[in-house]
């Protein structure tokens, strides 16, 4: 989900936190925070805190070697030069092993405090992905306007304009289809459509996305994982 935004990033491993990643995209507009709790894994053991510097394109090449139904074990020594990946198909007695070179990656780590938010919107992840993709064809900016009655996505481009308005509703049978708006104060923010399209690459990870917006502050887009999260912080655009 994030390899088109960042190429190199540090995977921090610890027994208490599981795996955490913080990375900033090359254009310095998007901050990515990933947390995969230890409970996400069938087995997780980390005797000593480790930082694994990975090239995501290379990692992706290794991960594609395995089939979906295979077991994957990732292993690193105490002061590792390599990350080992072992795929096992227990039915077929097939084992494949790969080793990926680790890298020393210099990256700034930023402190992310819990932010006060003007509004929180939860909507189906596929719905947000469609809006982000469709609106990008009209304009390189997307304005999100939230009131207590609706959230409006608005694009103004050279060929014309477009908007999608979603009103809050609760789907009893399929809660993940609901649209929820929690509002402290109305907000209107503009974001780069390119970055929103990078964010929606996480759509397959979660049925819903939660968007937290605050005036003149970065937006938070959160995809909840079964045990953890993938969060994107996107700086808004301002009128010059």
């Amino acid at each position: 989900s994030i390899k088109d935004s960042v190429k190199l990033c540090n995977f921090n491993c610890s027994q208490s936190q599981g795996i955490t990643v913080q990375a900033i995209d090359d254009s310095r507009v998007l901050l990515i925070a990933l947390k995969i709790d230890a409970g996400s894994f069938q087995e997780f053991r980390c005797d000593k805190d480790l930082v694994l510097g990975l090239d995501l394109e290379s990692l992706s090449k290794i991960l594609k070697q395995g089939n979906n139904e295979e077991y994957l074990t990732l292993m690193a020594e105490d002061s590792p030069d390599n990350l080992m990946a072992v795929f096992e198909d227990k039915k077929k007695d097939r084992i494949s092993e790969f080793s990926l070179k680790l890298m020393d990656i210099d990256s700034d780590v930023l402190t992310i405090d819990d932010m006060e938010t003007d509004c929180t919107i939860t909507l189906p992840a596929y719905e947000f992905a469609k809006i982000a993709k469709d609106m990008k064809t009209l304009s390189e900016s997307l304005k999100i306007v939230v009131t207590k009655d609706s959230v409006k996505f608005n694009a103004e481009g050279q060929i014309g304009t477009g908007s999608v308005i979603l009103k809050p509703h609760t789907d009893m049978d399929k809660p993940e289809e609901s649209v929820k708006i929690e509002l402290n104060s109305p907000v209107a923010l503009t974001f780069g459509a390119k970055y929103l399209n990078d964010i929606v690459k996480a759509t397959s990870l979660s049925s819903t996305v939660t968007i937290k917006l605050t005036d003149k502050s970065p937006a938070l887009f959160e995809y909840k994982l079964p045990s953890g999260y993938l969060r994107y912080y996107l700086a808004p655009k301002f009128d010059d």
């Binding site: 900033i24 310095r28 507009v29 998007l30 901050l31 700034d108 780590v109 930023l110 402190t111 992310i112 900016s141 503009t190 780069g192 502050s217 970065p218 912080y233 996107l234 700086a235 808004p236 655009k237 301002f238 009128d239 010059d240």
Partner: peptide, 14 residues
């Protein structure tokens, strides 16, 4: 015209 600030301007370095 719109300006796109860096995300780094919003968060403190650790």
């Amino acid at each position: 015209d719109e300006k796109q600030p860096s995300i780094k301007t919003f968060f403190m370095p650790e």
